[in-house]
Every structure is written in C-alpha cells, then in structure tokens.
Design a protein around this nucleic acid. Structure first.
Lengths: 200, 200
DNA sequence: CACGTTATGATACGTCTGTATCAGATACGG
DNA sequence: CCGTATCTGATACAGACGTATCATAACGTG
C-alpha cells in the first residue's frame, strides 16, 4: 500500500476554507477557485475530493452543522447537573447568537442557506429545517421540565413558546449581523423575555 | 418636441419585473437579461434606464420600499381613529408577515439584501437599516401611547420591547418563508405575545 | 413632414464560472 | 526501490455574466 491520507480530514480542511470565505465575503463568493485558494490547495484537489460544487456546498454545510452541535453539547455539559431550566434555556439560546467568529459564521451561512431554501424547494428540507426541528425538540424538553418543576409562568403554552423563542433568537442574530444591535442588547432582550416566562 | 415617455413609470415597470424574478427564483437569479425577459423588453432598454446593475438593484429596492410603505399606511389608516394601541401594533406587525404574494416578496428580497449587508459594509446602512429604524420609531410611539393609557403591562421596557417585537417578527417571517411554520401559527405566536404585554 | 426621443436588434469583448482532460511530480507503504 | 495513492499544473471548453457599440426602426410632437 502506498501513501495514505485521511480523506475525511482533507475534506474537513477544505470545508473550513469554504466557511471562512463565506463568512468573510458571503456565500456568493464561494467558488471552486476561491475555496482552493483559501485552503492553499490547487483547484484540481478540490475537484478531487468534492466532484461537483453541489457536493462541496453540501459537505461544508454538514461539517458546519456537526461543529456547532459539538459546541452546543460542550456548553450545555458545562452546566451543573441537573441544570436549572432557566439557565439551560438561556445558555442554549445564547450559544446560537452570533457573538464570536464561530457562531457568526454559523448564523451567516445558515441564513444564506435559508434564503436559498426560500426559492429552492429542493433545498428546503435538506438538512436545515430538520436541524432546526431538532433544536425545537430540545427546547420543548427543557420547557416541559421547567413546567413540571413549577418554574414556568402560568399561561405559557410550551409549543407556542418554543416557536417564539426560535424565531426571536433568529431575528436577534440577524440584527446583530447587520450591525443594527450590539450583542449585549440582544442578550438583554432575551434575558428580559426569559424573566417573563420563568418564575422565580 | 418628439415622442415623450414617463421615465419614472418605465423604471417602475422594470423594477417590478426584477422583484418578480427575485421572488420566484431568488435574488441570485436577477441578471440584466432575466429582468429584460421578465418585463418583456430588450436587454438594451434595461441598460437604457439603469446604466449599471448596481443602479438597477438600488432602484428596485427603493421601489419596493415605497410600495410597502404605502401598504402600511393604507392598512393603518383603515383602523378606527384613534386606533387602540394593541390593534395598531398587531396590524403593524401582521402587515410585515409574508402571508400573501406582495409581503412574501418584500420579506424575501429584504432578507436577501440583509444577507448581502452582512458581508458588505457599504450596503449595510443603505437604505435598509435606516428603514427598519423608522419602523422601530413608529412602534416605539405606539407603545408609549399604550403606556400613557395604562394599557401596557408592568415591567415592560419600551425600548427593549421594540427590539423584541422587530426581531420576533423578522424571525417568524423567515420561518414562514422556508415552510417551517404556517402563517396562522406565526400569527398565533404574535398574538399570544401581545396578550402578555398589553393589559385588558 | 421632419426631428429627436424612444426602443430594438445583432453583436462583440473580456471575465468568471463549473467541469473536464492531460501529463507528470511527489511521497510513502510494502 | 517499486508501485500506487496523492497532488499539482497547464490548459481547455461552453456558458453566463456585465458592459459596450454599432445601425436602425418606430413614433409623436411641433
């Protein structure tokens, strides 16, 4: 057997170059050539590991997704066990706000894909909506736990509140990225709202 | 004087063709040629009225903005005078949700521009943030009116609540456009929240 | 009718895109 | 050191893009 390279790792390296380009110049600036240049590799090699551009985009999306999932579980694992529901939800949502380079990239690329999905039904289910649904399930679990501990304010419907929190967090993230709100302002909005729906 | 044509009207006609293309196929599908075809006009004429693509995009954006402003004031004018604060705010926000073709287009193009603005500081102030700020001013006025009439719940900070409502509405609009929520669900979330911040 | 505005048509240029094809260089495991 | 996996380089292609440049047709006002 001759020279061997970890294909998965190479693909990850190229995917991260794609994410850097998208974060810096926008998703429209992502081309085979720009990704090759960013990752310090030949155009030919990008073709080698991702045959087409569609596969490149999809691969990078999945990579970004895995990475963020990891961040989430790391952060949530750092909470005391069992985590107080309010702290859990706040950490959960705060992690999704674009406050540092990593989460900024995640939100920007995520929103870029969402815009594509608005006019491309093919892309609509793949794999974003399902991912957001997964976040919704986790949030739902946290709120139900809060309710059973008597820490959820009366009149709060869990399903409605989950939809509310997801949409709010999304909108706050966008407002940060276009420079309309400072991250601290967004966090204040979120915190004030959590004060309303949690008791104590 | 020879043949005369209303340039403003022609530009509006072309701008509306652009908006239709953007709504159907996405902003990335907007090209000089596709806009010409959509408006049933020669490529040459698009160049005639908008010298460059940048001017075409800017002109169409302004056109869409004017149109939506008109829709807003029409709807708000249909309310009783003086409008009950809660009804005013609900109409105001509901109008921004993408529930029909017109508002769908507005939200889609708006989000597309927002994504561009995230990586293009040049585009960031022009003219979107300022436009959203204007909406914020109107909302602020409505909430202050509600407070002075004793219709705003205690513990509601007006500035924070305005930021909350704008972000929430934005996020709800996006969730509708990617097919994650039905318009009725989004309205229910909004209505439930307004129940919380308004008394009576 | 004549003149100038409005509009079309054909066509071209240079640039960028995704994709493809070729030969050949590099490096490591057996 | 041999062979094969890995990687590069040069180069090509057809298509789309924004922009530009012709000539010329249509048309309404004076």
């Amino acid at each position: 057997m001759p020279r061997t390279v970890d294909h998965t790792e190479r693909r990850a390296q190229i995917a991260e170059a794609l994410v850097r380009v998208a974060a810096r110049d926008g998703l429209h600036a992502v081309t085979m050539r720009s990704v090759a240049a960013e990752s310090g590799v030949s155009l030919r090699l990008v073709q080698y590991y991702f045959e087409t551009k569609a596969q490149l985009l999809l691969g990078a999306l999945r990579h970004l997704e895995r990475q963020s999932r990891q961040r989430w579980s790391d952060r949530l694992a750092a909470l005391p066990d069992p985590a107080p529901p309010r702290a859990f939800v706040e950490a959960f949502l705060d992690e999704a706000l674009p406050t540092d380079a990593q989460s900024r990239v995640f939100h920007l690329v995520g929103t870029s894909y969402a815009v594509l999905a608005m006019t491309d039904p093919e892309l609509a289910r793949e794999p974003f909506v399902s991912d957001v649904d997964e976040l919704g399930r986790q949030l739902t679990g946290a709120l139900e736990r809060a309710r059973s501990h008597g820490q959820l304010a009366e009149g709060v419907d869990v399903a409605t509140e989950v939809a509310h929190l997801l949409a709010l967090n999304n909108g706050l993230g966008t407002s940060i990225l276009i420079g309309q709100r400072a991250p601290s302002e967004a966090k204040a909005v979120l915190s004030a709202h959590l004060d309303r729906i949690f008791t104590g």
